[in-house]
Design a binder for these strands. Structure first.
Lengths: 353, 353
DNA sequence: TTGTAGGCGTTATCAG
DNA sequence: CTGATAACGCCTACAA
């Protein structure tokens, strides 16, 4: 592959002039400039990014560390980031951690040796990464965290209003008349999962409704977890009339458990998910969910990052994107109470449906 | 960040010796070796991959160019590739093309300047990329194509048995007694889409069933395309009793069209998709589909790639993975013919359902 | 405005 | 077996 020396020779100029043309780092006369550009176009020259990166101690790569691209929430985030990166000439190095802390550390350590311009991190857990992230920042690599704030770190950050979203979802169920609400939260060490549960509990407290311990379960953020924990909730007596799921995958598993238990959704039980995956509109019944703007999450993160790279940054900036409740047919008013005595009231309510 | 010079100094050896220890490129005495390794461990040294890459004209990066990570089929492929790469010390640079040829070219051109060890390409269309791919190969970058064979190229390659899969799906519908089969294929310039249609047509031909031109439609590989084309098919008279979709997203859109037309699946119409996305099991009714082993597709591609990188390659190798038909409730026997005269027969058959 | 030279951190070659 | 030394391709003072 051709290099700058070849160009200099063919254009009859010096190496430095070629560099100056390429980087616009000093004024070059029209004549020479044209000669250089012509040669560049003729042999389809492209600068060697490794040499450039070695010299500048910075490349046009941006590391992106996420839990798992296979989790349907993340592709949109990655895509949002990639699009913003691409239009600015940056490329994405994608790393999956599987929420495995040691893998996260491994990626963090190795990525640095490529001197990426920036790093976008969706932390696996609440573990303390501050020393490593600080060392990135000191090394001139911009860092932005998404979704979950790592312990002891306070740089740029983009999140979704998890607590408020879960609060709104719960409030909606309360407004429909539900009094027996349960939740299947996500893993305890994931901050966003925690925030959602917090919103759920806050809504219950505000409505002065008690949460029996058995009504609160924790699950992994996947379907099978939702299925298992859902089945457990459905077996309780009294059975909850509404369940708030920590994410859509959990809700999907729960939906399956409901179906297999011979129950109907929403007549017997209401379900709300979180994420608003595309699938949510296609299930039976369509799943109500709290929408997370994944694409924007990634896009905004990349913009914060590039702002740092271009030194336009001042103090750290934290962006919180809104979560929007999407009501669909998986929620409805509660069924008539099990005890025969309250039938009349229940029927009155039924008519509203 | 520390470099090899620092290590040499602290260990009281020469730069060359450090390199020899690091790369095992020449025997180093136990004594010196230990001294070097101790220092390395003490200061947590990691080699600068840019410098190494510049020198070796090869890095541990692997470019992966795909149409769109947001299409739910691709995350599994990417993950399969990433896992295989990671365990071998390689990292993935992910590029989305949106099936846009110019974006594909742009990525192809730019990626090379990072001197990746390899390139995994899922071509956007049948466009001729041979010159560019050849130039990669000549530059020492291994190339493997996935899913769709680019024109005029004959290197390593991993595909799925698209034609056979579609054939099996169609055959199954024929076996159930369907005689009015339609298809919504993918874009005409995508070879895998073409192969699936070929399998569909071959099954019809074998069964001596005619395919009215109106029964064959082409769609983009997404839900909205499936919806629009599905609606068009459902409006035909006579209406098809079974539809083979080019992929699951199309099938999902079609399912929505069926529902909105007030028809029942599978009683009124049978549907089979392609890909067997996780969603397929969760729709109502669960969607029959031809399973594509996405994760293995990516994994095998990466293995072929690494085989080339490690120079264990001989002649180009082409792997074809099997596609497996997954029957679910979206398929059933055809409904009674529309004409009133055949009602009795229809009812007899209904009972079987 | 243009050209020259030194060095970024590694690897590879070649004397000792 | 060990240690200088010269590239790899580019950027950037600094000198002309």
């Amino acid at each position: 592959m051709a290099n700058m020396n070849d160009i200099a020779r063919k254009a009859n100029v010096s190496l430095g002039t070629v560099s100056n043309v390429l980087n616009e780092t000093a004024k070059v006369s029209q004549d020479l400039r044209k000669r250089v550009l012509d040669v560049i176009a003729a042999i389809d020259y492209q600068p060697n990014q490794l040499a450039r990166g070695l010299r500048r101690v910075k490349t046009y790569m941006i590391g992106m560390i996420i839990p798992d691209i296979t989790n349907p929430f993340f592709p949109a985030v990655v895509r949002g980031a990639e699009d913003a990166a691409f239009t600015n000439g940056y490329r994405l190095v994608l790393c999956n951690t599987d929420n495995d802390h040691s893998k996260e550390i491994a990626h963090l350590n190795e990525l640095r040796t490529y001197h990426p311009a920036g790093l976008i991190l969706i932390p696996s857990s609440g573990a303390d990464l501050s020393s490593r992230l600080d060392s990135y920042a000191k090394g001139g690599t911009a860092v932005v965290c998404i979704d979950r704030q790592p312990h002891g770190w306070s740089g740029d950050m983009v999140t979704v209003a998890n607590e408020e979203g879960a609060f709104a979802a719960t409030q909606h169920l309360l407004d429909l008349g539900h009094k027996q609400l349960a939740a299947i939260g996500g893993p305890a060490d994931i901050l966003s999962a925690e925030a959602r549960l917090k919103g759920f509990k806050r809504a219950l407290r505000k409505a002065k409704i008690k949460l029996p311990p058995a009504y609160l379960r924790r699950s992994t953020f996947d379907q099978s977890g939702g299925y298992a924990n859902g089945a457990a909730l459905l077996a309780l007596n009294p059975r909850p009339t509404a369940i708030v799921a920590g994410n859509d995958l959990i809700a999907l598993g729960l939906l399956r458990a409901v179906r297999e238990a011979g129950l109907r959704c929403p007549q017997d039980i209401s379900i709300i998910g979180f994420d608003n995956l595309e699938i949510a509109q296609l299930t039976d019944p369509p799943l109500a969910s709290v929408h997370q703007p994944g694409y924007q999450l990634g896009g905004q993160a990349m913009e914060l990052l590039l702002r740092q790279v271009k030194k336009q940054s001042k103090e750290p900036k934290q962006i919180v994107l809104e979560a929007e409740l999407k009501i669909r047919q998986s929620v409805g008013p509660p069924p008539a109470p099990a005890s025969p005595r309250s039938r009349p009231a229940a029927q009155a309510r039924r008519k509203k449906t």
